[in-house]
């Protein structure tokens, strides 16, 4: 008997050998052109390495002493901004997330809530911060609002996806008992997505702390403004201290988040 052969049926031109090669070659050609457009200067990179290490070995060490109060205040403000904005944003994002999950929402509510999350993610935090500084003035209030808005888009979208992936039969069982919509959510959906809710919240807090150290550059409060000033004045030792403190803060948060995850998830 002849040996039988088998081939996976192709799904279209992109799935056949010629199509695959065409796609692969196109990507490589594009990458080569793109790299040329960026105009990489290797000599500059080599010199830059040495410059990177100037940060931290500058001579203006006395600036750190003068500015340590301001630095710690700024860092505290950044942390406070993130800690306030994260739960505020999540609180707003939860109803929007339910609305943006097609399996528990209605068509119109779905489109409206999806649009809100897309709008919120449409702009980078820096852009939102610039607009809000115009609106409410310099300071941490603009920062808190910026981070809260960014949190709504991030959390709303991912929360909605978690709901859409949940086991529908559980909600169906609660529904079949005659429970109302809110009870169906609280008993049939939330217990299923709770670990994701906590995990996403901690992750967003982490992101917000990092963002809060940057949006100060455009006047939205936090350590960012101080960091920028030290760069501008070549006070690199102070810059290094700030960067080290930010890293320390992020590490501490990571440890805290890990502890919460082990305990509750």
């Amino acid at each position: 008997m002849a040996t039988r052969t088998w081939q996976r049926p192709s799904k279209g031109w992109w799935d056949r050998p010629a199509g695959r090669w065409a796609i692969g070659i196109t990507i490589v050609v594009y990458l080569v052109i793109a790299l040329q457009a960026i105009d990489i200067n290797f000599a500059r990179i080599a010199r830059g390495w040495a410059r990177l290490f100037e940060v931290g070995v500058g001579t203006q060490t006395e600036v750190v002493g003068q500015k340590i109060g301001e630095i710690l205040r700024g860092l505290g403000e950044s942390l406070a901004m993130a800690v306030i904005a994260t739960p505020l944003g999540i609180l707003l994002a939860i109803p929007i997330g339910f609305g943006a999950a097609h399996n528990v929402s209605t068509k119109w509510v779905y489109y409206i809530c999806r649009s809100i999350t897309v709008l919120s993610r449409g702009f980078h935090e820096i852009v939102i911060a610039i607009l809000l500084v115009k609106m409410v003035g310099f300071g941490p209030l603009a920062g808190v609002l910026t981070l809260a808005i960014a949190t709504v888009g991030f959390y709303g979208k991912l929360f909605a996806e978690a709901i859409e992936e949940s086991d529908g039969s559980v909600r169906e069982a609660v529904q079949a008992s005659g429970a109302g919509w809110l009870q169906q959510m609280v008993f049939g959906i939330i217990p299923q997505v709770k670990p994701r809710m906590i995990g996403l919240g901690l992750y967003r807090l982490d992101i917000n702390v990092r963002e809060s150290t940057v949006i100060g550059v455009v006047g939205a409060g936090g350590i960012g403004a101080t960091l920028e000033t030290t760069f501008d004045r070549y006070e690199y030792v102070a810059s290094a201290v700030i960067l080290a403190l930010i890293i320390g803060l992020v590490f501490a948060l990571e440890a805290g988040a890990g502890w919460i995850r082990r305990r509750y998830l």
């Binding site: 039969s169 169906e172 529904q175 079949a176 005659g178 008993f187 049939g188 299923q192 709770k194």
Partner: peptide
Amino acid sequence: QRSRIGMIFQSFALVDRL
């Protein structure tokens, strides 16, 4: 009306984390 009809499911459909 649904509250007057009990239902038992093939996959149990229990809320696992409760």
